[in-house]
Design a binder for these strands. Sequence first.
RNA 1: GUGGCUAUAGUGUAAUGGCAACACAGGACCCUGUGAAGGUCUUAUUACGGGUUCAAAUCCCGUUAGUCACCCCA
Length: 428
Amino acid sequence: MAKLKFQTPTGMHDILPEDQLYYQKVFDTAKKLFDYYGYSRIETPILESTDLFVRSVGENTDIVEKEMYSFKTKGGDMVVLRPEGTAPVMRAYFQNGMVSMPQPVKLWYYGPFFRYERPQAGRYRQFHQFGAEVIGDSDPLFDMQTIVILYNILEDLKIKNLIVRINSIGDETCRGEYKKALSKFLRNKKNDLCRDCQKRSKTNILRVLDCKEPKCREIISQAPQTMDYLCESCKNHLKEVLEYLEELKIPYILDPFLVRGLDYYTKTVFEVETQDNEGGRQESLAGGGRYDILGKAIAGEAVPACGMAVGVERIVQKMRDNNVDVSTKRSAEVFLAQIGPIAKKRGMVIMEEFRRANMKVAECFNKDSLKYQLAKANKLGINNVVIIGQKEAIQNIAIIRNMETGKQSEIPQEDIVKEIKKRIKEEN
RNA sequence: GUGGCUAUAGUGUAAUGGCAACACAGGACCCUGUGAAGGUCUUAUUACGGGUUCAAAUCCCGUUAGUCACCCCA
């Protein structure tokens, strides 16, 4: 390949016309389901104040520590390319006075997000997520509903072998108890933990549970479980969510070691993955949970809320693996061929007439050779071709050529749309 | 941040250290108002920089980029 001076930055990609089919399908499917469940779409800026994420996602999380595109504006403000969607939506909720709307407020979003990481399969620096947030209600019904919507969207997109991994990490009070217990448990085992976990046990102890190092895994398997430390209300909350899931026959596994990389979660946390037999690649396609303390971090006001987010690139990858049909292309019904400048002008006018009749037209106005234009029509598999040359333009007539039979007939220009419509109808 | 692998036309692929080849796509023409065919031509300093060698796409080193995995996540 010839050396190109410019290309996309690391981990970022052009979404080409053939890719758009997949992205469009994901968007449309999500929109359809969110509409059905009464969620309204919201768009927040790509840039947000750096502090919004530091305060909400958490200082000692990977996202904030090493994955944010953060910079200073000319005015001296610290801003970031948003790394996730929940905090901005919550910010918008407060900023736009949604507190005084009927609760809960159900919102969904779709857009690009940015994390500075080493790219790999299904993992990019600019990627797309769609997600939903239910703000202002603590009912476990909504924990369940976000999972159900998520599940339904993925199923509609023909993603197979879906499984929900779910856990509860407690609320402000009982999580504290648990952290203490875990800390106590790990205290005399510190030297056996990996280096990362030694650091984590100081800064963000829950994340030790998430470690994949075998020696850490072994220790963790003996560790106290969040489940045993849940307070009464958290326990009931989890129980209800699980009951709902069973009722709706959503396959799930209760994973006592599931914790998430963001600090704002409380109670329910979950991830959705597919269990594909080959390769063993098991990325989570989506994740979410309840975040009753996020409001306090953002606006000083506790508002119960929960939500979920889905990685579009990962979905698209799965759709490709599964050969999901995404062709929505509406092929042109008629080809407009012209020869000469006068005919070209007439062609433009006729194209508009077709558009008003809601018929799709293919053309090659940039080529003057009729030979080329017919070859193009042939390649596109279009049977009806309207030909207008110098002579026809002047006489106000047009030739209609049937590509299959090769038969041609002349008709007045004002009848073109009508005649083509008639022919297409006869063909079907 | 750590490690593995890769880099040849627009795309996909060939080439025991010895002439850079093929398919598709694109463009031009044979053929300036009529498509399925055929033919001719065209589209590459083998990512970049250095080294070994009579000779490098091929071996070695470096750079860059891509890719996969770890970490973490969507």
